[in-house]
C-alpha cells in the first residue's frame, strides 16, 4: 500500500523522465521484435502493387510537421513503392497544406534521386493551392489549369513529360492522402471514388484509425496505413526497413510502460477503495 501511496504522490516529472528513457533505450539495444502485418496495411500495399506500371498516382501531403513522424514515414515508403512499380507520381496537397507541400519536396527528392527517378518525368510537385475540395474539383477538370500551369518551383507544367499522359485527376489510378485531418480523404471519396471509381488509400495518424476504418470496411478506401505502426508494416512488406521499423521497438517499450502504469494505477485504486470501505 505504501508503494502506491508513494507512487501517487510522486512528482509527475519522474514519469516523464521514465518515458523518455524507455523510448530511448531500444534505439541503442534493439529487441528486434517481429512485425505483424494487419489487413489495413496489406490492402494498401496490394492496391499499389496491382497498379499497372506507368499509371498515375496522386500523393497528397496533408499534414503539418506535428505528425511528420507518422505521416511523413508513411508517405516516404508509399512513394518508394510507387517508384519501384514505375508509377507516375503527382505530389500536392488536396487539403491546402502549405507545410505539407514543403515537406513533400524534402521527403520525395532524396528517394527519387536514390531510385534514379527524374523530376518532371517520373514525379512532380504541383505546389500549394488554397481551396481544398475546390482544388480537387478543379483538378478533375484540368490539372494544369487548376495549377495555373506551374509547379512548386514555378516551372511550366505543360512542358513536363509527366503531364503529357494525364489531363484530369480522374485519370489517376490511385489517390493517397497522408493526413492528420482527413479532409482530402472525404473529397477523394466524394468526388473521385463515388463518381469515377478511383482507388483511395488513407495514410492517417494512429488516433484517426478508430473513426476512418469505417470507410475501409465499406470499400470506399482500398487500404489504410495507420500511424507509425502502419508505416512499419508497409516497410516490412516492401522489404525496405526504414525509420518506422527502427522505431517499433521503442514503440513497444513505451506501450509496455503505459500498460504497467494503467495496471498499477488500478491496483492502487482498488487497494485504496478497499481500505476506505
Amino acid at each position: 500500500m505504501k508503494f502506491f501511496e508513494k507512487l501517487d504522490s510522486l512528482d509527475v516529472r519522474w514519469l516523464y523522465l521514465l518515458l523518455a528513457i524507455v523510448v530511448t533505450i531500444p534505439f541503442f539495444k534493439p529487441f528486434g521484435l517481429p512485425i505483424q502485418v494487419d489487413n489495413m496495411t496489406r490492402q494498401a500495399f496490394d492496391t499499389i502493387e496491382s497498379a499497372p506500371p506507368g499509371s498515375y498516382v496522386f500523393l497528397s501531403f496533408d499534414f503539418l510537421p506535428s505528425t511528420l513522424t507518422e505521416n511523413g514515414t508513411q508517405a516516404a515508403i508509399v512513394a518508394r513503392h510507387c517508384f519501384q512499380r514505375n508509377l507516375k507520381v503527382l505530389v500536392g496537397s488536396a487539403e491546402s497544406n502549405n507545410e505539407g507541400v514543403q515537406l513533400a519536396q524534402s521527403i520525395i527528392e532524396p528517394i527519387a534521386k536514390e531510385m534514379n527517378k527524374e523530376y518532371g518525368v517520373d514525379w512532380v510537385n504541383l505546389g500549394f493551392k488554397v481551396g481544398g475540395g475546390l482544388y480537387v474539383r478543379s483538378m478533375i477538370e484540368d490539372i494544369i489549369k487548376a495549377n495555373a500551369d506551374q509547379d512548386f518551383t514555378g516551372k511550366k507544367l505543360s512542358e513536363m513529360p509527366i503531364m503529357q499522359g494525364i489531363k484530369s485527376l480522374k485519370e489517376c489510378e490511385i489517390l493517397a492522402s497522408f493526413t492528420s485531418l482527413g479532409g482530402a480523404l472525404n473529397d477523394f471519396v466524394a468526388y473521385l471514388y463515388s463518381e469515377y471509381g478511383n482507388k483511395v488509400i488513407a495514410g492517417i495518424t494512429g488516433g484517426m484509425i478508430t473513426q476512418y476504418i469505417v470507410y475501409l470496411q465499406s470499400g470506399q478506401y482500398k487500404g489504410i496505413l495507420g500511424g507509425l505502426t502502419g508505416a512499419a508494416q508497409y516497410e516490412f512488406l516492401l522489404g525496405k526497413p526504414g525509420k518506422a521499423i527502427q522505431g517499433m521497438d521503442s514503440q513497444s517499450a513505451a506501450h509496455a510502460l503505459f500498460f504497467v502504469f494503467v495496471v498499477l494505477g488500478n491496483i492502487g485504486f482498488y487497494l485504496k477503495s478497499k481500505k476506505r470501505s
Binding site: L19, L68, E99, F258, F261, N266, F269
Partner: peptide
C-alpha cells in the same frame, strides 16, 4: 523551414505523449 518550423512543430505535438502517460495512470480506472 527545416531548422525551425519542421522540428518545432513536431516537438510541440509530441509533448502530448507525456501527458497521456500521466493521464493513463491517474484517470484510467475500473
Amino acid at each position: 523551414f527545416n531548422a525551425t518550423i519542421s522540428p518545432l512543430g513536431s516537438a510541440m505535438f509530441s509533448l502530448l505523449a507525456f501527458y497521456m502517460l500521466s493521464a493513463a495512470y491517474r484517470a484510467f480506472r475500473m
